[in-house]
Amino acid sequence: MRDMIVSELTQAMQELARGFAHFLPRLIVMLIIAFVGWVIAYILKVVLRAILRLAQFDKLSESAGAAHLLTQAALPSSTELLSRFGFWVAWLGFLLLGVSVLGIAGLQEHISNFFLFLPRLFVALVIVFFGLLAASFFSRAALLAAVNANLPSPRLLSLSIRTIIIVFVLSMVFEELGVGEQTMLVTFGTAFGAVMLGFAIAFGLGGQRLAQRFLERRFLPGTKEEKEDELPPL
């Protein structure tokens, strides 16, 4: 009995040792891959940063208004952000590659799924980035135009535009990611419809005069306008 236990233990130990001996090189390989991956990713980051700086990407995003957005979100500059993103994606890729070397059953599939998912994730992130940019830009443009044109409730207008754009962006993102497509579609449809209805009602009731004024100005050039306050600035 005891011998049996001993022999079983020994056997188990041996198997464990064998298994470990079998596993150890893979682990080492994985670590090596992780390390090499880190180095490559780091180089990638440096190179990416250099290229972006050379291309004056900061200026580009500055004029697009993205820089301000990032500052507001307490994020580093867009160049830094993009190069860091590149670093993490690359290193993560290497890590997963390393893990797959371990040959753990089931993990393989998930990892390959992850790799398939990666481009979509990237696209989604880009959409979010530019979507937020667009939302911010257009809402501000609407706000300024409304204030300068003396339209009522400029902020509401601006907020509505921002909301619509964000909802639209989110729906695109989720569609891209393939998460709850149907749900999102319905949600978006409902939200968009609600906002539009709101607008329709608001304009119908409150904008009647505005619309009338607009039409008059457009099609009846003879109509005298109250323009006394507009002293010629130049």
Binding site: E62, S63, A64, G65, A67, H68, F137, R140, A141, L144, A145, V147, N148
Partner: peptide, 13 residues
Amino acid sequence: SVMSRDHIIQALA
């Protein structure tokens, strides 16, 4: 360029 330069000009109005 704290924001679109055209917006800055418009905001002065």
